[in-house]
Simulated assay, not measured.
Amino acid sequence: MAEVLDTAQVQAALAGLTDWSGDSTAIVRTVTFATFPDAIAVVTRVAMAAEERDHHPDIDIRWRTLTLRCSTHSAGGTTQRDIELARRIDEIIAAQV
């Protein structure tokens, strides 16, 4: 099972990510796109990346705004798997904007 990162480890990892915040329970990023179809295109690409990793974020869609929340439910908090998924999500978002 993946090990939950402590708050200091999460903060250090977040320094290498774009616009993420969080702690040992979860990490979160909110981003607004130019159009609703742009937002949905990102959701689709994130879904595919999540399936490849068998690790799925919580995604909240509000028109053009997405909030992505990563937490390893089976471990009870933020793990390295979440950091890696967040890094991939950052790449997907950067390619869309």
Rank of each mutant, 00 (worst) to 15 (best):
A34W: 02
T35E: 15
P37S: 10
P37H: 10
D38Y: 05
A39E: 06
A39F: 09
A39D: 10
I40M: 14
A41V: 07
A41C: 09
A41H: 10
V42F: 03
V43L: 04
V43W: 01
R45H: 14
A47R: 05
A47C: 09
M48Q: 14
A49G: 04
A49V: 08
A49Y: 02
A50M: 03
A50T: 09
E51L: 05
E51K: 08
E52T: 12
E52I: 08
R53A: 15
R53T: 02
D54Q: 09
D54T: 07
D54M: 02
H55L: 07
H56I: 10
H56E: 05
H56V: 09
P57M: 11
D58W: 03
D58N: 10
I59N: 08
I59S: 10
I59R: 05
D60E: 10
D60N: 07
D60F: 03
I61C: 07
R62A: 12
W63D: 15
W63S: 13
T65P: 07
T65L: 03
L66V: 12
L66H: 12
L66F: 09
L66P: 00
L68G: 08
C70F: 06
T72E: 01
S74L: 02
S74W: 01
A75P: 03
A75W: 00
G76W: 00
G76F: 00
G77E: 09
T79I: 00
Q80G: 05
D82E: 11
D82K: 06
E84V: 02
E84D: 15
E84L: 02
